[in-house]
């Protein structure tokens, strides 16, 4: 058995020091050691993006990093996105635009969208679609996810609990 390594990682503003096997993936460290089960595993080939977190502020797939590589770094997961009990604009936007159904891709989608908006605060629809090319969703057909990212970028996210009831004829879902 390979010898374990001691790592110190700041995750969602809390510093953790742990002994880990070198082969332990960052996502497994987050889920199994820290109980951060909000970050999910959807594939084993770095395609689906469900495990996306931020490493020092940029999106990475936490299934394609060993925990030892995160030693000394800062990780933000979906669980650290809301601040002071207030949803981040993207979280609110995903809710408002009905950008999730089963919810399994959602943590990764939101984390990648956040990284996308950091790099490009005012993306076009095509830039949003391209920016999410590494995240698979099987429920939504992506349309409402794209709308949610657009809404978050445009600052049109409201805190209302409903959207208008007459959206049934609209060409786009979500933001009425």
């Amino acid at each position: 058995m390979a010898s374990s390594k001691t790592i110190t990682v700041e995750v969602d503003d809390v510093s953790y020091t742990d002994d880990v096997e070198p082969r332990l993936l960052l996502v497994q460290y987050l889920r199994e050691r820290l109980g951060k089960t909000g970050t999910l595993i959807g594939c084993d080939t770095t395609n689906c993006g469900a495990c996306t977190v931020h490493l020092d502020g940029v999106s990475v797939k936490s299934c394609t990093m060993f925990a030892v590589q995160a030693d000394g770094h800062n990780v933000t997961t979906i669980e650290g996105l809301a601040r002071d009990g207030k949803l981040a604009p993207l979280q609110q936007a995903f809710h408002q635009c009905h950008a999730l159904q089963c919810g399994f891709c959602t943590p990764g989608m939101i984390m990648q969208s956040a990284s996308l908006l950091t790099e490009n605060p005012h993306p076009t629809e095509q830039e949003i679609r391209d920016g999410l090319e590494g995240n698979l969703c099987r429920c939504t057909g992506y349309q409402n996810i794209v709308a949610a990212v657009q809404a978050a970028a445009d600052g049109t996210v409201s805190s209302d609990s409903t959207v208008s009831a007459d959206s049934d004829e609209s060409e786009t879902a979500g933001v009425a």
Binding site: K36, T37, G38, T39, L40, T77, I78, E79, L81, A82, L87, Q91, F94, H95, L100, G103, F104, T106, P107, I110
Partner: peptide, 10 residues
């Protein structure tokens, strides 16, 4: 259904 799914409390 959304609240727990968008905050990682799934």
């Amino acid at each position: 259904e959304d609240a727990h799914l968008i905050t990682g409390r799934s």
